[in-house]
Design a binder for these strands. Structure first.
Lengths: 204, 204, 204, 204
DNA sequence: CATGAATGAGTTTTCATTCAT
DNA sequence: TATGAATGAAAACTCATTCAT
């Protein structure tokens, strides 16, 4: 996200990196607090405290509290959709598409659980701007197209594609939530079992 | 301004019920706003305005903003669990249990969509007190017991019961969310299709 | 506290008395609360609760919270000054004047401790109106005149009369305060000892 | 801390001390208003206005309105008792003790009249915490001990020491109050005369 | 007459944002 | 560039007073 220093001999390199460090610290702190207490329940100075920076510093990286959530949202939503899109088995059977998607989501959720929780919990906050919401629709459209194709091949149930997406995605979220609540563990076995359920939910 | 009174002699009805009316108006307004903007994003005077009462009036019915969310949460969570429990086919095959549960949830969600959204979105808010959280665990325990019995009868997949619950409940929420977003309609067909998916997700 | 009904056949007696009873109950409750928590620290509904009447009832006897304090203040200040004036040994030696005054104050303070505390603590509240403050000055003027006369007779110290008043009255209040705090008991002995001190403080 | 700058180029003095300056301004404003209108009668923004700071600033120096009164109370009560204790003629005749105490109190009351009035008027407010009240008792205990010793030496009247304290302290307060009301002037002569009265009030 | 539910102006307190250093 | 003290607008909540019953 930060452009590579065009001048490798610059003495200013550490400060430049420090800038990135600070941004990252702010993002990390903000994710934690937004997940724990929600957007409106989190005070900017709290974010600054947890990030170990001054309150004013946040405004050097983000123009407002709203832009902070939105930038975080877009950053991670983009990363998440990127992972799902990357290597998506476009021409393969639906079973493999589900496997790819389920695995990609699970990996992300395991690597960056707070970020995933953040995306999930702030899904439709009134503070999200148009751009943040747009990312969602694009991936949804893609999902619908692939599912329609699979229906035509008779691989999945002939229900509205949006319903099938909802069922699969909902099942995934449901699984994750129980993990966050400590009632389930996100082991490879759990993930695989969940995937089986999700597939059988929609297969023809 | 006032609707044409079909009965010109009825004058006392509103005054008689006014106390209950006001409380209900506050609860309705609060649900709407909490769903739209979240707990911390909703100001008490906004609730009062939408309810058509003075700001101070809210404090005659609820001791604090927190008690307002908690009372609403408990009221509807109790109603919802009551509906699921009532007439639950205890000794019947798992398929019927799923049908009963799915139908009960769908009926409630259709009758009182805002209330259902409220319960769903405020699920684990830090402002919910012990009592509010307790209702959830009790119904979950029951679900686990029934699923275990069904597993022993070989009716559902031999995965952790909590995972199966998560999948089914998650699928239901997923379906609803798409309805809230206007991407799906909560018709009897949609509901039935979703139920089929949910059942096939967990059946052995 | 309520006078015996002089007319046993009057059907209206109870209502009539009830009115007076209510006013008295309000005054009693108000004195207690004003002493405990101060004027601004006392809520009108609290007064109503303790008096056992409805909140609105207070406004049938007093036009406002301010008029409530002021009426109470004037009522008891008038009673107190009346007691001091009644039978004041105008032509007698200063020693006897001090005795009379000290005894009158002590009797009142013993009979109606809350009322005395009220007068003392609300002495110069910004909510007292002109009339309330006027009562004070009149009795003070009288005290100054008598003390000047006594000075001319060489009975008391030739200091500013206002200082002598301040010393004696201050000493009395000081004694009472320790009683209120439970550090001293308002026995006849204490009162007499205090009087001796007060007299020797100002005698020539 | 900084000597009076006779040098017109000094620009940095106020900023250096600004933190302390603000706190002091708040304390000064609060004392004035608490004396004039009482604790509950004073609104925090009023204090802020008079102090020339923003309302929020007060909460950077004091955690609440209550802590504001308590900190002020303790600060000045500690200063006052310190002055009385400092150089107290422990082994000298009671006459000298009275002189020392009376002079110390009068000096403080003259230097910081608002602070003295504040201490006096808020003496037993329900908003004072345990620590604020504790300061009072310690100095009282000391007074009792010294008076008992003086009684054994036959220097003062054989009345309860607490009564003698009450008389002397009450007389002092009485004198001050008349000064606050403008009915007496706190000249050295007045102070000396008052002291004479106070001594003769308790001497054997 | 008596009541107490209802209210909005006012209270204490928090917090996003700015700006002097 | 980074800071954090300062702030005022807005939040949650209280209460003197009114008025329909």
């Amino acid at each position: 996200m930060s452009p590579p220093p065009p001048n490798p001999t610059a003495r200013k390199a550490p400060p430049t990196l420090r800038g990135t460090d600070k941004r990252d610290a702010i993002v990390d702190a903000a994710i934690d607090l937004f997940v724990e207490r929600g957007f409106h329940g989190t005070a900017v100075p709290e974010v600054a405290d947890r990030a170990g920076v001054g309150a004013g510093t946040i405004y050097r990286y983000f123009t407002s509290k709203e832009s902070l959530v939105n930038e975080i949202y877009q950053q991670f939503k983009t990363e998440l959709t990127g992972r799902v899109m990357k290597g998506f088995p476009v021409d393969k059977p639906a079973r493999q598409m589900i496997h790819h998607m389920w695995t990609a989501l699970a990996e992300f959720a395991k690597e960056k659980p707070r970020a995933y929780a953040f995306l999930e919990l702030h899904h439709h906050g009134s503070y999200l701007d148009a751009q943040s919401n747009a990312i969602e629709s694009r991936i949804m459209d893609m999902g619908v197209r692939f599912l329609q194709a699979a229906q035509e091949r008779g691989e999945v149930k002939p229900y509205p594609p949006m319903l099938l997406i909802a069922i699969v995605h909902g099942a995934f979220i449901g699984m994750l939530r129980k993990c966050w609540e400590g009632l389930l563990e996100l082991t490879p076995e759990t993930i695989a079992a969940g995937e089986t359920c999700a597939w059988e939910a929609i297969r023809a």
